[in-house]
Nucleic acid binder design. Sequence first.
DNA 1: AAAAAAAGTTGACACGAGCAACTTAAGAAC
DNA 2: GTTCTTAAGTTGCTCGTGTCAACTTTTTTT
Lengths: 228, 228
Amino acid sequence: MTKEISTIEQRPYHHGDLQRAIVEAALDVLSESQSTEFSLRELARRAGVSHNAPYKHFADKRELLAAVSAVGFELLAKRMAEATKELDSPRQRLGAMARAYVCGGVNNPALYRLMFGGYLGGQDDGRPAIERTAAYNMKALIVDAISDGALGRPIADTEANTRMFDGAILVFWSQMHGLTLLLADRLVGPSDKMGELTESILQGMLDGLANCIPAVPEGVWVGPPLAG
Amino acid sequence: MTKEISTIEQRPYHHGDLQRAIVEAALDVLSESQSTEFSLRELARRAGVSHNAPYKHFADKRELLAAVSAVGFELLAKRMAEATKELDSPRQRLGAMARAYVCGGVNNPALYRLMFGGYLGGQDDGRPAIERTAAYNMKALIVDAISDGALGRPIADTEANTRMFDGAILVFWSQMHGLTLLLADRLVGPSDKMGELTESILQGMLDGLANCIPAVPEGVWVGPPLAG
DNA sequence: AAAAAAAGTTGACACGAGCAACTTAAGAAC
DNA sequence: GTTCTTAAGTTGCTCGTGTCAACTTTTTTT
């Protein structure tokens, strides 16, 4: 449908930028149907190419979904960065980040589940590298806010504090991850109360963390595992 | 394969208890493949019946998965109940419950995702009734522990406290839900540190809740929505 | 015993994943 | 500029799957 070729983009070969077109079609269909059970053929149809053209850019459906997931990570990270840009108070930054995170997930549950759910990288074969970097990117935002004092006092982002940081990130992340999915799956609602819920849960969490940040046990990783 | 007919079970018609056999096959395949993308035909094959026999018991794949999900809820609720049975201290009960919950999810992520993820009841057409009751069942376990004093002091399970209870449940549930999924999806690990992680996060959460239980905003529901 | 209903089977259709062989267009080599 | 190579796209196939329809067999009802 919409060819959407940014005039700057080079169109590498005879037809348009199919790779991008397919990913965008997939994002559209995913957003509309809220399901990953669309067919590559449907995407090909939307892009106006033959049913097998996508295979020239993606080995299989899984690889396409990985690319979609990567875009999702970029979008989410961008929104979180944008939401916190103008804010000075680290506490406010953390709040804005949390709201952006939850909001992003609730507004497109299927994409969120694709990004974080086990569809990709199920075993040890490893998630696409881009997803790892995006996940680390998001972690960095949290670390910044915490080290700037979001928990009531600044905490130096040093080696010695690693396990404490990981503990805080783990609490924060799992809390927001859980809230996002409960809202997205309508196990909690209504979702227009999203903002208030996020804020009140966040406040309770920070109260708890201010008392005591749980140090994560030796050997625990928070974020995608590094090696295979 | 394994017909597995409990000698007590009545076999209603000419062949075995197909309904049960199919659901059990589905549970097997789901556990093995950690994916819901198996075929009904595969299940039929395993049960030794023709490819269409399952349709006499389930209108479509979705309905079969709903039945599997229901079994999952029952299993999980049973394990949580079992884990807390012998414990007097409400705090210990809550801890045991949390561990059983997280452990159940991590040991079979695909089943957990099927139960709580958006595959079923995506829109408003409603989740199967059995899933609702199971979810309420689990909520009740949490309410019991809290009203017995798991948060440091007993809190009467009265109408007046409803929103506070919902707040506590929301915090507890979303925290554990998030932790479970992060572990299941290997975004946090390693999963053999599951118990310690659960306990330390739970402790931090209770510290926070002891200070202040967030009252959920007016009109929020925690658990599957009641009406359409 | 006959009728109705439930459970299971066979056969068909449409559709999607993915492979193979072919065609076209773009760049590189000469 | 012609040829060669290769990326991008197409056509056509095989195979498995969901699901419908029609038929058979067994069980329950009457």
